[in-house]
Amino acid sequence: MKTIDRTQKIDVEALKSQLATLRTIPQRFKLPLSEQQAYDALLAAYQTEVANRQASFVSNPMLEKNIAAMAKALTLANPKFGIMLCGTCGNGKTTLLRAFQLLLNFLNGKGYFEQSTGIRIVDAKDISALMRDPHTKTVRNTPMLAIEDMGREATEVLDYGNVLSPVVDLLEYRYNEQLFTFITTNLNAKDVRQKYGARIADRFNEMLCVIPFTASSFRGKTLNT
């Protein structure tokens, strides 16, 4: 790269081209399927997860809408680098996350991805221990990570007298590195802002496709989660 001559006007486009060689643009995750194929595949995986819990699957418009929203988010030409399923308990968030994991494992086994692809699911309450343990600290660099039940964990923890915010630290790191992050939570947007602060809430707007679950609990009914 030539030295910048302070007597001349900078050629912005030329400099931008040279600066780009110093940065690696992260490749965001995208399902190797059409939007309709992704919907059908997620629906099949969801039904499989319901059957695995020895329950009967009964579709409804809200569930179909949520699966369709997720299929669209996962097949966009320029996708975000995460998904958040939010809403009250018992209405299908975890089942859809597990369905996504099942579908990924299936597609991976069939050679749909150039590199081995899967998603690691961790409970939000376990993140504090995982972040402190040097043997499991790689959780923050996991290419695809799902945080289950975000909001149930303590926002701050004490570690040898130091106040830490493990989930916030993890989310900020993954935001900066543009690593795919999947979240399920019973919190709504207002709750997220109150619990984690405006900084994280603002990053979520860029980072995550938010899919609200507004149906009542399926537990104890014919449609199970």
Rank of each mutant, 00 (worst) to 15 (best):
S56R: 15
L63V: 05
Q37M: 03
A44D: 15
N60W: 02
G82N: 06
F57C: 06
Q54G: 09
S59V: 07
S59P: 05
E64L: 11
A73H: 03
R53P: 02
A77H: 08
M70T: 11
P26Y: 11
T48S: 11
L76N: 08
L74N: 03
N60G: 03
Q54F: 14
R28H: 13
N78D: 14
V50F: 08
F57M: 05
L63D: 13
T48E: 12
A68W: 06
E49P: 05
Y39W: 06
P32Q: 04
P61N: 14
E49C: 12
A73N: 03
K80N: 11
K72C: 06
K30W: 04
Q36C: 01
N52S: 12
A45H: 08
Y39Q: 07
A44T: 14
E64W: 03
A45E: 04
K80V: 07
E49D: 10
A38G: 02
L42K: 01
L74H: 03
A38D: 02
Y46P: 04
E35N: 02
A77M: 08
E49I: 15
L63A: 10
L43M: 15
F81G: 00
L76E: 14
N66I: 07
A51R: 12
R53T: 05
I67C: 03
R28M: 13
M70V: 13
L31R: 00
S59I: 06
L42P: 06
V58N: 12
P79M: 07
E49Y: 12
T48G: 08
I25F: 12
L63I: 12
F29W: 06
R53L: 09
V58G: 02
P61M: 09
G82S: 11
P61W: 08
F57K: 04
Q27N: 12
S56K: 15
N52H: 08
R28P: 05
L31N: 02
Q47I: 15
A55N: 11
P79V: 05
L74P: 09
N60V: 06
E35P: 00
E64R: 09
E49R: 14
Q36A: 06
L63C: 10
P79L: 07
P26Q: 04
A77D: 11
L31Y: 02
S34I: 00
D40A: 10
V58E: 15
S56G: 00
A38Y: 00
R28I: 10
M62C: 08
Y39H: 10
Q27W: 00
L74V: 07
A69H: 13
K30D: 08
P26H: 04
A68Q: 11
A55P: 01
Q36W: 02
P32H: 04
L42S: 03
A69C: 14
F81R: 06
F81H: 06
S59D: 08
P61I: 12
E64V: 14
F81S: 05
T48H: 10
A45G: 03
L63K: 09
I25S: 14
G82Y: 05
N60Q: 13
F57E: 01
A55V: 03
F57H: 11
A41R: 12
S34M: 04
E35H: 00
Q47R: 15
A68G: 05
E64A: 14
A55Q: 14
L33Y: 04
D40R: 03
A51I: 07
Q36T: 08
G82I: 10
A38M: 03
Q54K: 15
A77W: 09
F57A: 08
N52Q: 12
T75H: 00
R28L: 15
R53M: 07
N60S: 07
A68P: 01
N60T: 05
